[in-house]
């Protein structure tokens, strides 16, 4: 499905989402008649300082002016790897975008990420992983780290890495691995209208608290994180 197909299928009642050099900004109309703020990264565009500041600005302008949920569409490259972006403080721009999304989510503007293509590393942290619910579309191919780079650093062959990846979701790319880890909450199906699936999710949004570690444990992909975090929390609370 192309981005246009996805937007049309999500919002049969219409949308005004523009794609400007891979930066998606706009709004859409939900079945209920309410509006949904839409932003995102398209066409496997790298997320750099110029893109991030427009995305965060779009959300900030909406806070206080509009109401309703926020959709973050993701088909990005990694963060933009360049001297200029780092010189200008890319870490602050990406963090700022994530902070704005988290703030919105915590203050009455529930956020949904929709991973429909690629994403990686810092770009994924600043977009999809900064939303309350991250949804995957079949065919999405996120890769926190790609296997060739991993092969280079670990000095293992691609074959050896692929073999290891069969026994654990912890390092290898792919939507199913991120789902097992608890990063991706659910995957929608192309068999049903996307608008119906979006509506169903909005009608049944989980609470704003971060339950991804518990999800990863329940799915058998991340067995330690929830328990360790809970133990540290308890010890810290006792220590008061």
């Amino acid at each position: 499905m192309t981005l246009d197909d996805i937007l049309t299928a999500l919002f049969p009642d219409g949308h005004e989402v523009r794609n400007d050099k891979g930066v998606l900004l706009g709004t859409a109309t939900l079945r209920s008649g309410d509006s949904m703020l839409v932003l995102g990264v398209a066409d496997r565009t790298a997320l750099g300082v110029d893109e991030a500041i427009r995305l965060s600005g779009h959300v900030l302008r909406s806070i206080g002016r509009d109401s309703g949920p926020i959709l973050v569409l993701v088909d990005s490259d990694s963060q933009r790897m360049s001297k200029r972006d780092e010189l200008l403080g890319l870490n602050e721009f990406l963090a700022h975008l994530a902070k704005v999304l988290i703030h919105a989510d915590m203050n009455g503007r529930p956020t949904i990420g929709l991973l429909y293509g690629h994403s990686a590393a810092g770009a994924l942290l600043a977009t999809g992983l900064a939303t309350r619910v991250l949804v995957g579309l079949p065919g999405a191919d996120p890769a926190v780290m790609d296997l060739p780079s991993m092969a280079k650093v670990t000095k293992l062959s691609m074959e050896a890495l692929e073999e290891k990846a069969k026994s654990t979701p912890v390092f290898a790319p792919g939507l199913s691995n991120l789902t097992q880890m608890g990063a991706v909450h659910l995957t929608w199906s192309h068999a049903a209208p996307l608008a119906d699936q979006l509506e169903a999710l909005l009608a049944d949004m989980p609470a704003a608290r971060d339950g991804r570690d518990a999800l990863g444990k329940a799915r058998g992909g991340r067995l330690k994180a929830a328990e360790i975090a809970e133990r540290v929390r308890d010890l810290a609370l006792q220590a008061r």
Binding site: V144, M150, F171, A183
Partner: peptide, 18 residues
């Protein structure tokens, strides 16, 4: 992110940011 557990590390960072 620790390469050998990249997905867990990435997600840990997302949880820490939150």
């Amino acid at each position: 992110v620790r390469l050998q557990e990249a997905n867990a590390g990435e997600l840990a960072i997302a949880e820490i940011m939150r």
